[in-house]
Structures are given as structure tokens and as C-alpha cells.
Lab assay of single mutants.
Amino acid sequence: QAPETKIVDKSRVACDGGEGALGHPRVWLQIPEDTGWVECPYCDCKYVLKGSKADAL
């Protein structure tokens, strides 16, 4: 199944896999201003900063 994409309001987000005990260790991710998105290294969930150029795609 394809990784999930989430639109977020802040450039710093936490990801834990979203499945409680079945998820992964919580990691904090920083969305770079130049790209407007970041992917979780564990679950490949893509976080897109709302209003960024990546959000316009």
C-alpha cells in the first residue's frame, strides 16, 4: 500500500507510525523551507507543509 500523505500546519512534526504499539519509535521531523515536505525514515509517511510550494502540487 502507498505511504500516507499528511498536510500539516507546522514545519516540525512528530511521527510514531500512528498505530500505537504497532507503530515505530517517535521521531521529530523538520520540514525544509526549500522543499516544503519531509518523509518519515521509518514508515515513509510524507508530511507536506500547508501553503508551501509542495502543497500546491
Rank of each mutant, 00 (worst) to 15 (best):
L22A: 11
P32F: 05
A54D: 08
I31C: 08
R12L: 14
C45Y: 15
D9H: 10
G20H: 05
A2N: 11
L22K: 14
C40W: 11
G20M: 03
A54F: 00
Y47P: 15
V8D: 02
Y47T: 09
D34Q: 09
G23E: 07
D55Q: 00
P41Y: 04
H24V: 03
K53M: 11
Q1K: 13
A56P: 14
I31A: 02
K10W: 08
D44V: 07
G36H: 01
P25Y: 05
G36T: 02
Q30D: 14
K46C: 14
A2E: 11
R12Y: 12
P32K: 03
G18K: 10
Y47N: 13
E39Q: 14
V8F: 01
C43D: 00
Y47D: 14
T35N: 02
W28F: 06
V27A: 04
W37E: 04
D44A: 15
P25Q: 08
E19T: 08
L29E: 03
L57C: 15
C40Y: 11
S52M: 01
R26L: 11
V48S: 00
C15M: 00
G51H: 02
C40T: 09
G20R: 02
Y42D: 04
D9P: 04
A56W: 14
P3A: 11
K6I: 14
P25T: 10
A2W: 12
A14N: 01
D55W: 00
H24N: 02
K46P: 00
W37G: 04
G51R: 00
V38T: 06
P41K: 04
P3K: 14
P25M: 05
W37Q: 03
P41Q: 03
E19W: 07
P3I: 10
A54C: 14
P32H: 08
T5A: 12
G51E: 10
V27T: 04
C40R: 09
G23R: 15
P25G: 05
K50G: 11
D9W: 00
I7C: 05
D9I: 09
L57Q: 12
W28C: 12
R26S: 05
I7V: 10
V13N: 03
V38M: 06
L29S: 02
L29M: 01
L29H: 04
L57K: 10
C45E: 00
T5D: 05
V48I: 13
W37Y: 13
T35C: 06
W28M: 06
E4T: 15
G23A: 15
K50C: 14
C45Q: 15
W28R: 05
D55E: 09
D44H: 15
K10A: 09
P41I: 06
S52K: 01
P25R: 07
T5Q: 10
A14R: 04
C43M: 02
S11M: 11
C43Q: 00
V13M: 02
E33A: 11
T5I: 14
Q1L: 12
K10D: 11
K10G: 08
P32D: 11
T35K: 09
K6W: 02
V48W: 09
D9T: 14
G18F: 07
V48G: 02
D16P: 05
D9C: 12
I7N: 01
P25H: 06
C43I: 02
I7Y: 10
P41E: 02
Q30A: 05
K50W: 00
P25D: 10
E33V: 10
R26W: 06
E33M: 09
C45G: 15
K10E: 12
W37T: 03
D34F: 05
E4D: 13
K46T: 03
D55G: 02
H24T: 05
L49K: 14
G17T: 02
A21H: 08
K46G: 04
G18W: 06
E33K: 08
Q1N: 12
D34C: 09
P25K: 08
P3S: 12
D34M: 04
I7M: 08
S11K: 09
E33D: 08
A2Y: 13
K6S: 07
A21T: 09
E33Y: 09
R12H: 07
C45A: 15
P32A: 06
D44M: 15
V48Y: 08
W37H: 02
V48E: 13
D34K: 04
A21C: 00
G51D: 10
K6V: 15
L57W: 04
R12K: 07
D44Q: 14
D34I: 03
Y42N: 06
K10N: 11
A21G: 08
K6M: 11
Q1A: 10
S52E: 09
W28T: 06
G17C: 08
R26V: 08
R26K: 10
E19Y: 07
A56E: 10
V13T: 01
C40G: 10
R26I: 09
V8I: 07
Q1P: 11
V8T: 07
K10P: 01
K46R: 13
C15E: 00
S11G: 06
G23C: 00
D44R: 15
Q1W: 14
C43A: 00
T35W: 06
A2T: 10
K6D: 03
G36Q: 03
R12N: 09
V13R: 01
K53I: 13
L29I: 05
C15G: 00
S11Q: 08
E39V: 14
K53Q: 12
H24P: 03
G20P: 03
V38L: 04
A21K: 09
P32M: 05
G18V: 03
C40V: 11
A56D: 13
E4S: 15
W28E: 08
G51K: 00
P32Q: 04
Q1I: 12
G36Y: 04
C43L: 01
P32I: 05
Y42I: 14
A14T: 07
P32C: 11
G51Q: 02
R26F: 05
P32N: 08
Q1E: 08
G23V: 08
E4P: 13
A21E: 12
L57P: 10
K50E: 14
I31V: 01
K6T: 11
A21M: 08
V27F: 05
R12E: 11
L49P: 15
K6A: 02
W37P: 01
P25W: 04
T35G: 03
W28H: 09
C45R: 15
C43G: 00
A2D: 09
